[in-house]
Design a protein around this nucleic acid. Structure first.
Lengths: 167, 167
DNA sequence: TTCGTTGGTTTGAAAAACCAACTGACATCC
DNA sequence: GGATGTCAGTTGGTTTTTCAAACCAACGAA
């Protein structure tokens, strides 16, 4: 009956690569169409048909992705009509907190993946949004060269798994 | 002979969904393993074997993804030895500018996708990186509710394609 | 000479994605 | 009062993609 089961390792358990929150995040929202569905919902388009049309996703894939996102706690599915049963989707807190990811991706895409931006955002200050990442402590814009990685996962270093020799 | 060809529509041309820089960006770097490969390269791991091991990607997939990323101008492949020919990868400017995307994804994953962060970054100011998005104009942190979408793509609105009736 | 390293390619089977058509339970149009 | 439309998906059949593991070629080291 059921179709696909949720196979997410989320980078935590039996994953084969480096334990990493990026991998874990992609395990939850990294499949094709997921982020586009989230984009539409964040635009206020809550209905299946509209999300399908505006993303271009095949309906069966979209249904599967929405279920996975619901299981991941990123969206909620709300019945807005019995008889016939009709549902709509909205973002949870976790889902809303994905908007910075979309913003970063959109900024990159605007610059490197399209000729002219197909959309823009007006910030409440009146200007077009031009987002920067700053450090909350010093307030300075994050230059990625003044970031030092500390690998906390045991058995791993920046260059890979520490050669296990003992246990 | 050849394997896969580059099928990227990049959200620009014949795409079926909303024209969108997010979709365009995902068309270039949204396939499985791509962002993890970029993560490793941004960590300074430039060699194929190391990237394969640390991401957990199947070698054939990784080879295909790296070629696509090279074609997209996100990485460059540099021969560091003839006889035998040996290559290493590094990020282009476009690739380096994906680091904010990774940072946003990592922040989200730290909070919503793992129990304890497997890595952290020390900012040059001495503190752990805690990144925020701010508007470059007003300097204020971006609250995503005080953002107003303007759809620039002709024929599209926030809720979808404008019903074509004329042409 | 044999082993290990490196950057892949090949192979064959399993999984996932795609597309178009279909379903039900209504509401609305003519 | 039948025809058509809306909506949230399913279903079925085909095409693509992914995967794991083995293989390869060119060297360098032991």
């Amino acid at each position: 009956m059921g179709e696909e089961q949720v196979t997410q390792e989320a980078g935590q358990g039996g994953a084969r690569g480096r334990p990493c929150s990026v991998a874990a995040a992609l395990g939850l929202v990294g499949e094709k169409w997921s982020l586009l569905a989230i984009r539409e919902i964040s635009f206020g388009n809550r209905r299946f048909d509209v999300i399908a049309r505006n993303t271009g996703a095949p309906r069966d894939r979209l249904a599967a992705r929405l279920r996975a996102l619901e299981a991941a706690g990123v969206v909620v599915r709300r019945r807005y009509s019995d008889h016939p049963p009709r549902y709509e989707y909205e973002l949870t807190e976790a889902g809303r907190e994905l908007r910075p990811v979309l913003t970063a991706l959109r900024a990159w895409g605007d610059k490197w993946a399209v000729d002219t931006p197909p959309a823009a955002f007006t910030h409440s200050c009146g200007h077009d949004l031009d987002a920067a990442m700053v450090c909350r402590h010093c307030g300075g814009e994050v230059g990625f060269d003044d970031l030092k990685l500390r690998v906390l996962a045991p058995g791993w270093t920046r260059e890979g798994p520490a050669l296990a020799q003992g246990t």
